[in-house]
Protein backbone atom coordinates (compact mmCIF):
# COMPACT_ATOMS: atom_id res chain seq x y z
CA UNK A 1 0.00 0.00 0.00
CA UNK A 2 2.88 2.33 0.75
CA UNK A 3 4.06 1.93 -2.81
CA UNK A 4 0.63 2.76 -4.09
CA UNK A 5 0.48 5.86 -1.95
CA UNK A 6 3.90 6.90 -3.14
CA UNK A 7 2.81 6.44 -6.72
CA UNK A 8 -0.37 8.33 -6.13
CA UNK A 9 1.32 11.27 -4.45
CA UNK A 10 3.96 11.46 -7.14
CA UNK A 11 1.27 11.40 -9.77
CA UNK A 12 -0.59 14.22 -8.08
CA UNK A 13 2.50 16.36 -7.77
CA UNK A 14 3.77 15.74 -11.25
CA UNK A 15 0.58 16.52 -13.09
CA UNK A 16 -0.52 19.51 -11.11
CA UNK A 17 1.87 21.97 -12.62
CA UNK A 18 0.11 23.91 -15.34
CA UNK A 19 1.54 23.71 -18.81
CA UNK A 20 0.87 27.27 -19.81
CA UNK A 21 0.93 30.03 -17.30
CA UNK A 22 -2.13 32.13 -16.88
CA UNK A 23 -1.78 35.68 -18.08
CA UNK A 24 -1.28 38.24 -15.38
CA UNK A 25 -3.69 40.62 -16.99
CA UNK A 26 -3.08 43.63 -14.78
CA UNK A 27 0.69 43.34 -14.95
CA UNK A 28 0.56 42.93 -18.68
CA UNK A 29 -1.11 46.27 -19.30
CA UNK A 30 1.45 47.86 -16.99
CA UNK A 31 4.36 46.70 -19.12
CA UNK A 32 2.94 48.34 -22.22
CA UNK A 33 1.60 51.48 -20.64
CA UNK A 34 3.65 53.88 -18.56
CA UNK A 35 1.43 55.70 -16.17
CA UNK A 36 2.47 58.73 -14.19
CA UNK A 37 0.68 60.20 -11.21
CA UNK A 38 3.31 62.32 -9.57
CA UNK A 39 4.09 65.92 -10.38
CA UNK A 40 7.79 66.66 -10.17
CA UNK A 41 9.86 69.66 -11.05
CA UNK A 42 10.55 69.72 -14.78
CA UNK A 43 12.13 73.13 -15.01
CA UNK A 44 13.53 75.62 -12.47
CA UNK A 45 14.46 79.23 -13.03
CA UNK A 46 16.02 81.65 -10.64
CA UNK A 47 15.41 85.30 -11.43
CA UNK A 48 15.73 88.46 -9.37
CA UNK A 49 15.71 86.37 -6.20
CA UNK A 50 12.58 84.47 -7.13
CA UNK A 51 12.60 80.74 -7.69
CA UNK A 52 10.24 79.68 -10.42
CA UNK A 53 9.46 76.03 -10.55
CA UNK A 54 7.44 74.32 -13.25
CA UNK A 55 6.15 70.91 -12.39
CA UNK A 56 4.89 68.31 -14.78
CA UNK A 57 3.98 64.65 -14.45
CA UNK A 58 7.09 62.57 -13.87
CA UNK A 59 9.17 65.77 -13.98
CA UNK A 60 9.27 65.58 -17.77
CA UNK A 61 7.73 67.49 -20.65
CA UNK A 62 6.38 65.10 -23.23
CA UNK A 63 5.08 65.66 -26.70
CA UNK A 64 1.34 66.05 -26.44
CA UNK A 65 -0.75 67.29 -23.54
CA UNK A 66 1.13 68.31 -20.38
CA UNK A 67 -0.58 69.58 -17.30
CA UNK A 68 1.77 71.97 -15.54
CA UNK A 69 1.97 73.54 -12.10
CA UNK A 70 3.89 76.75 -11.76
CA UNK A 71 5.20 77.87 -8.39
CA UNK A 72 6.99 81.10 -7.59
CA UNK A 73 8.80 81.24 -4.29
CA UNK A 74 10.57 84.14 -2.68
CA UNK A 75 9.92 86.64 0.15
CA UNK A 76 6.39 87.40 -0.97
CA UNK A 77 2.97 85.96 -0.56
CA UNK A 78 1.41 84.38 -3.56
CA UNK A 79 -1.44 86.85 -3.38
CA UNK A 80 1.06 89.56 -4.28
CA UNK A 81 1.83 87.86 -7.55
CA UNK A 82 -0.23 88.97 -10.52
CA UNK A 83 -0.27 88.88 -14.28
CA UNK A 84 1.50 85.54 -14.53
CA UNK A 85 1.90 84.52 -18.15
CA UNK A 86 3.23 81.33 -19.65
CA UNK A 87 4.28 80.96 -23.26
CA UNK A 88 6.16 78.06 -24.83
CA UNK A 89 7.97 78.93 -28.04
CA UNK A 90 9.67 76.60 -30.48
CA UNK A 91 12.49 77.80 -32.67
CA UNK A 92 12.93 75.81 -35.83
CA UNK A 93 16.07 75.22 -37.90
CA UNK A 94 15.21 78.19 -40.13
CA UNK A 95 14.83 80.48 -37.14
CA UNK A 96 11.06 80.55 -37.49
CA UNK A 97 9.18 80.64 -34.24
CA UNK A 98 5.92 78.98 -33.37
CA UNK A 99 4.15 78.04 -30.23
CA UNK A 100 1.69 75.33 -29.29
CA UNK A 101 -1.67 75.21 -27.51
CA UNK A 102 -1.16 76.45 -23.98
CA UNK A 103 -2.75 78.50 -21.22
CA UNK A 104 -1.26 81.94 -21.40
CA UNK A 105 -2.61 83.76 -18.36
CA UNK A 106 -2.23 81.68 -15.21
CA UNK A 107 -4.49 82.23 -12.21
CA UNK A 108 -3.43 81.24 -8.73
CA UNK A 109 -5.19 78.31 -7.15
CA UNK A 110 -5.00 78.99 -3.42
CA UNK A 111 -6.12 75.52 -2.35
CA UNK A 112 -3.52 73.75 -4.47
CA UNK A 113 -0.93 76.47 -3.88
CA UNK A 114 0.21 76.76 -7.47
CA UNK A 115 -0.64 78.32 -10.80
CA UNK A 116 -2.22 75.59 -12.92
CA UNK A 117 -1.70 75.53 -16.66
CA UNK A 118 -1.00 73.27 -19.58
CA UNK A 119 0.98 73.02 -22.77
CA UNK A 120 0.39 70.75 -25.75
CA UNK A 121 3.86 70.34 -27.20
CA UNK A 122 3.58 69.58 -30.88
CA UNK A 123 7.06 68.18 -31.36
CA UNK A 124 9.98 66.77 -29.46
CA UNK A 125 13.12 68.76 -28.80
CA UNK A 126 15.88 68.07 -31.31
CA UNK A 127 18.95 69.68 -32.79
CA UNK A 128 16.71 71.62 -35.13
CA UNK A 129 13.85 72.36 -32.81
CA UNK A 130 14.36 74.12 -29.51
CA UNK A 131 11.62 74.75 -27.02
CA UNK A 132 11.76 77.68 -24.64
CA UNK A 133 9.38 78.82 -21.97
CA UNK A 134 8.72 82.53 -21.64
CA UNK A 135 7.29 83.39 -18.24
CA UNK A 136 6.48 86.78 -16.86
CA UNK A 137 4.90 87.86 -13.60
CA UNK A 138 4.34 91.02 -11.64
CA UNK A 139 5.17 91.44 -7.96
CA UNK A 140 4.77 94.77 -6.26
CA UNK A 141 4.13 96.41 -9.61
CA UNK A 142 7.44 95.20 -10.89
CA UNK A 143 7.36 93.04 -14.00
CA UNK A 144 9.72 90.11 -14.15
CA UNK A 145 10.32 88.24 -17.40
CA UNK A 146 12.31 85.05 -17.68
CA UNK A 147 12.94 82.42 -20.27
CA UNK A 148 14.23 78.92 -20.02
CA UNK A 149 15.14 76.28 -22.56
CA UNK A 150 13.42 73.00 -21.90
CA UNK A 151 13.54 69.51 -23.34
CA UNK A 152 10.38 67.97 -24.75
CA UNK A 153 10.65 64.21 -24.87
CA UNK A 154 8.88 61.59 -26.89
CA UNK A 155 5.63 60.48 -25.29
CA UNK A 156 6.15 56.80 -24.42
CA UNK A 157 2.50 56.29 -23.59
CA UNK A 158 0.64 55.59 -26.82
CA UNK A 159 -2.62 56.58 -25.16
CA UNK A 160 -1.61 60.24 -24.96
CA UNK A 161 -1.02 60.83 -28.65
CA UNK A 162 -2.01 64.01 -30.44
CA UNK A 163 -2.73 65.20 -33.96
CA UNK A 164 -2.56 68.51 -35.81
CA UNK A 165 -4.60 69.36 -38.87
CA UNK A 166 -6.20 72.12 -40.87
CA UNK A 167 -9.96 72.15 -40.78
CA UNK A 168 -12.29 72.86 -43.69
CA UNK A 169 -12.61 76.36 -42.30
CA UNK A 170 -8.92 76.90 -43.01
CA UNK A 171 -8.03 77.06 -39.33
CA UNK A 172 -5.30 75.03 -37.68
CA UNK A 173 -6.53 72.62 -35.02
CA UNK A 174 -4.91 70.41 -32.43
CA UNK A 175 -6.44 67.41 -30.69
CA UNK A 176 -4.52 65.89 -27.79
CA UNK A 177 -5.56 62.92 -25.68
CA UNK A 178 -5.55 63.64 -21.96
CA UNK A 179 -7.09 60.48 -20.44
CA UNK A 180 -7.18 57.57 -19.90
CA UNK A 181 -3.47 57.19 -19.40
CA UNK A 182 -3.94 53.49 -18.84
CA UNK A 183 -7.05 52.17 -20.59
CA UNK A 184 -8.72 48.95 -19.57
CA UNK A 185 -10.74 46.39 -21.42
CA UNK A 186 -13.83 48.20 -20.25
CA UNK A 187 -15.73 51.39 -20.56
CA UNK A 188 -13.16 54.23 -20.38
CA UNK A 189 -13.80 57.92 -19.99
CA UNK A 190 -12.03 59.47 -22.96
CA UNK A 191 -10.77 63.03 -22.44
CA UNK A 192 -9.19 65.18 -25.10
CA UNK A 193 -8.30 68.81 -25.57
CA UNK A 194 -9.26 70.56 -28.80
CA UNK A 195 -7.46 73.78 -29.63
CA UNK A 196 -7.43 76.26 -32.44
CA UNK A 197 -4.60 78.55 -33.47
CA UNK A 198 -5.75 82.14 -33.68
CA UNK A 199 -4.23 83.61 -36.81
CA UNK A 200 -2.67 86.95 -35.87
CA UNK A 201 -4.54 89.90 -37.29
CA UNK A 202 -1.63 92.28 -36.97
CA UNK A 203 2.12 91.90 -37.47
CA UNK A 204 4.32 91.41 -34.41
CA UNK A 205 4.89 94.46 -32.28
CA UNK A 206 6.83 95.29 -29.14
CA UNK A 207 9.58 93.18 -27.70
CA UNK A 208 9.58 89.41 -28.34
CA UNK A 209 7.44 87.55 -27.66
CA UNK A 210 4.28 89.27 -28.76
CA UNK A 211 1.53 87.04 -27.35
CA UNK A 212 -0.89 88.01 -30.08
CA UNK A 213 1.31 86.10 -32.51
CA UNK A 214 1.09 82.93 -30.41
CA UNK A 215 -2.55 82.79 -29.38
CA UNK A 216 -4.61 79.61 -29.11
CA UNK A 217 -8.13 79.00 -27.91
CA UNK A 218 -9.84 76.00 -26.39
CA UNK A 219 -12.69 75.61 -28.85
CA UNK A 220 -16.13 75.44 -27.32
CA UNK A 221 -19.39 73.83 -28.40
CA UNK A 222 -17.68 71.57 -30.88
CA UNK A 223 -18.44 67.86 -31.04
CA UNK A 224 -15.93 65.13 -31.62
CA UNK A 225 -17.71 62.08 -33.02
CA UNK A 226 -16.00 58.85 -32.08
CA UNK A 227 -15.77 55.47 -33.80
CA UNK A 228 -13.09 53.26 -32.24
CA UNK A 229 -11.86 50.31 -34.31
CA UNK A 230 -9.08 47.76 -34.30
CA UNK A 231 -6.98 48.31 -37.44
CA UNK A 232 -5.26 44.89 -37.59
CA UNK A 233 -6.29 42.99 -40.74
CA UNK A 234 -7.11 39.93 -38.64
CA UNK A 235 -9.52 41.97 -36.56
CA UNK A 236 -11.61 42.75 -39.60
CA UNK A 237 -12.50 46.33 -38.61
CA UNK A 238 -13.70 45.22 -35.16
CA UNK A 239 -15.44 47.88 -33.12
CA UNK A 240 -17.18 48.23 -29.79
CA UNK A 241 -20.53 49.44 -28.55
CA UNK A 242 -21.86 52.05 -26.15
CA UNK A 243 -19.28 54.68 -27.14
CA UNK A 244 -20.16 58.32 -26.60
CA UNK A 245 -19.05 61.28 -28.66
CA UNK A 246 -16.86 63.86 -26.95
CA UNK A 247 -18.41 67.12 -25.84
CA UNK A 248 -16.93 70.00 -23.92
CA UNK A 249 -17.28 70.02 -20.17
CA UNK A 250 -16.69 72.73 -17.58
CA UNK A 251 -12.98 71.92 -17.30
CA UNK A 252 -12.50 73.11 -20.88
CA UNK A 253 -11.74 69.57 -22.08
CA UNK A 254 -13.84 67.28 -24.23
CA UNK A 255 -15.23 64.20 -22.51
CA UNK A 256 -16.69 61.08 -24.05
CA UNK A 257 -16.75 57.32 -23.54
CA UNK A 258 -14.74 54.70 -25.37
CA UNK A 259 -15.12 50.96 -24.90
CA UNK A 260 -12.18 48.71 -25.59
CA UNK A 261 -13.18 45.08 -26.02
CA UNK A 262 -9.63 43.73 -25.89
CA UNK A 263 -6.08 44.96 -25.47
CA UNK A 264 -4.00 45.83 -28.51
CA UNK A 265 -3.98 48.47 -31.21
CA UNK A 266 -7.01 50.68 -31.55
CA UNK A 267 -7.71 53.60 -33.81
CA UNK A 268 -9.93 56.38 -32.57
CA UNK A 269 -11.66 57.60 -35.70
CA UNK A 270 -13.02 61.10 -35.28
CA UNK A 271 -15.27 63.50 -37.06
CA UNK A 272 -15.02 67.03 -35.71
CA UNK A 273 -18.11 69.20 -35.96
CA UNK A 274 -18.18 72.90 -35.15
CA UNK A 275 -20.82 74.65 -33.06
CA UNK A 276 -23.16 74.68 -36.07
CA UNK A 277 -22.80 70.97 -36.67
CA UNK A 278 -20.66 71.47 -39.74
CA UNK A 279 -17.93 68.90 -40.37
CA UNK A 280 -14.53 70.51 -40.08
CA UNK A 281 -12.51 67.35 -40.45
CA UNK A 282 -13.02 63.59 -40.53
CA UNK A 283 -14.78 60.99 -42.60
CA UNK A 284 -17.14 58.17 -41.81
CA UNK A 285 -15.39 54.81 -41.68
CA UNK A 286 -16.90 51.61 -43.06
CA UNK A 287 -18.76 49.62 -40.46
CA UNK A 288 -18.60 46.28 -42.30
CA UNK A 289 -16.78 43.37 -40.84
CA UNK A 290 -13.91 42.83 -43.28
CA UNK A 291 -11.63 40.04 -42.10
CA UNK A 292 -8.18 40.11 -43.63
CA UNK A 293 -8.39 43.76 -44.64
CA UNK A 294 -6.70 46.48 -42.68
CA UNK A 295 -9.28 48.82 -41.20
CA UNK A 296 -9.91 52.05 -43.13
CA UNK A 297 -9.23 55.08 -40.97
CA UNK A 298 -11.03 58.39 -40.90
CA UNK A 299 -9.02 61.30 -42.24
CA UNK A 300 -9.00 62.43 -38.61
CA UNK A 301 -7.80 59.77 -36.19
CA UNK A 302 -5.48 59.05 -33.29
CA UNK A 303 -3.97 55.61 -32.68
CA UNK A 304 -3.70 54.21 -29.22
CA UNK A 305 -2.13 51.07 -27.80
CA UNK A 306 -2.45 49.28 -24.51
Amino acid sequence: MKKAIFFFTTLCLSVMSCTKEKTDYEAEINTVVTEHYEFKEAAAINNDGYDISIEALNGTFYKGYNEIRLKISGDHTNEDVSAVTFLPVMTGADGGRTSCPHRYALVYNADAEHFPGYAVFTSESSANETWELYISFTINNQIHSVKQTITVQEQPNKNLNMTTFTGKDGEQYFIALVAPQKPKVAENELVAGIYKFNKPATPPSGSFPDPSQFSYTEVSNYTLQLDPRMPEPSMGNHSSINNKDLTRQSDGLYHGVVNYTMTGNWTLNFIMLNQNGKILKGTEVPTDFTPGVEGVKSELYIDILF
Binding site: Y25, P233, G264, N265
Partner: peptide, 15 residues
Protein backbone atom coordinates in the same frame (compact mmCIF):
# COMPACT_ATOMS: atom_id res chain seq x y z
CA UNK B 1 -4.82 36.05 -27.22
CA UNK B 2 -4.42 36.98 -30.83
CA UNK B 3 -1.05 37.22 -32.49
CA UNK B 4 -1.07 39.56 -35.51
CA UNK B 5 0.57 38.42 -38.72
CA UNK B 6 3.28 40.94 -38.07
CA UNK B 7 4.56 39.30 -34.93
CA UNK B 8 6.53 42.39 -33.95
CA UNK B 9 3.22 44.09 -33.30
CA UNK B 10 1.51 43.90 -30.01
CA UNK B 11 -0.65 40.88 -29.31
CA UNK B 12 -4.26 41.42 -28.45
CA UNK B 13 -5.78 40.01 -25.34
CA UNK B 14 -9.15 39.48 -23.74
CA UNK B 15 -10.75 37.08 -21.32
Amino acid sequence: RMYPQDRSKRTMFAY
